[in-house]
């Protein structure tokens, strides 16, 4: 999204002037910094941060609004909407955004929010699953996770989730692709340094699904994973694959304590 510069126009009754923002650069990041963990927010440009700070200006809120509508929409053979079982999302979904992905007994593996939504759709609503990266699934995920905004990320990595956490960790430190780079080579070793024209962040996941200016829309964390993987010239895994969900858990733990920012705005 871009700000549009305007020439001053005068009209009877109303006067119209140039729009602009001035925001000084702070160093105290408040909740966006926990110990040595820093949210991607702190690496973003002032202009980008100001878009995120204002819920009206934040274009991702349009997806959240759509999610709210879908929440109340009855679909499928069971004649149910999300609201039929879960009622008010502000109450029932208050924690979800901070604690997913979780271990899901019937499948014997981890599931993330997207997968949980589709499970509800196929099993409880008897409706069709939404496609990954579709407007519906992104909207619902953003809406659900938005309910936990401000809550510190607190995933469970012990018990049955432990082996999956280990796999995610292994993935993170595993070099891959023609460039032979692991996630950590950029996001741990070089966070804060430039990679060509871009500033590398710590690669925290607390703001996803995120409105990315480059994408001109909201995108999932797995889309970001696929982007990173192909940038090091590795073959990306499928969105929603076990590898990525395990990585999602590891990343959530890595950013433990950072507030859920969904929907964040990044460059």
């Amino acid at each position: 999204m871009r700000r549009i510069a305007l020439a001053a126009v005068a009209a009877s009754g109303l006067t119209v002037m140039l729009a602009g923002t001035a925001l000084s650069d702070e160093t105290d990041w408040g909740a966006y910094e926990v110990g040595d963990k820093r949210s991607g927010y702190t690496y973003a440009a002032t202009e980008t941060r100001s878009i995120q700070d204002d819920d009206f200006e934040n274009p991702a809120m349009l997806w959240v609004d759509t999610g709210q509508e879908l929440w109340d929409t009855v679909e499928g053979e069971a004649g149910k909407a999300c609201a039929s079982c879960h009622d008010d999302a502000a109450v029932s979904m208050a924690e979800v955004g901070a604690i997913y992905p979780v271990y899901y007994e019937p499948r014997g593996k981890l599931i993330n929010i997207e997968q949980r939504i589709n499970l509800c759709r196929t099993e409880n609503m008897k409706a069709k699953a939404w496609k990954w990266e579709s407007r519906e699934l992104l909207s619902m995920t953003a809406f659900v996770r938005n309910q936990a905004r401000g809550r510190p990320v607190a995933v469970k990595i012990d018990g049955p989730a432990a082996p999956f956490y280990e796999k995610g960790k292994e993935f993170y430190y595993q070099r891959r692709g023609q460039l032979d780079m692991a996630c950590k080579n950029c996001h741990e070793d070089n966070a804060g340094n430039m990679i060509r024209a871009n500033l590398l962040s710590q690669g925290q996941s607390n703001g996803f699904p995120t409105y990315r200016l480059k994408w001109q829309k909201v995108g999932s964390l797995h889309r970001r994973f696929r982007g990173c993987n192909s940038q090091v010239r590795a073959t990306p895994y499928k969105a929603g694959s076990d590898e990525y969900v395990n990585l999602e858990l590891f990343l959530a733990d890595r950013g433990r304590g950072l507030p859920v920012e969904t929907p964040a705005v990044r460059n």
Partner: peptide, 9 residues
């Protein structure tokens, strides 16, 4: 860009 934002006074 997509999803245009416009503000004025």
């Amino acid at each position: 860009s997509a999803n245009p934002f416009m503000s004025f006074y």
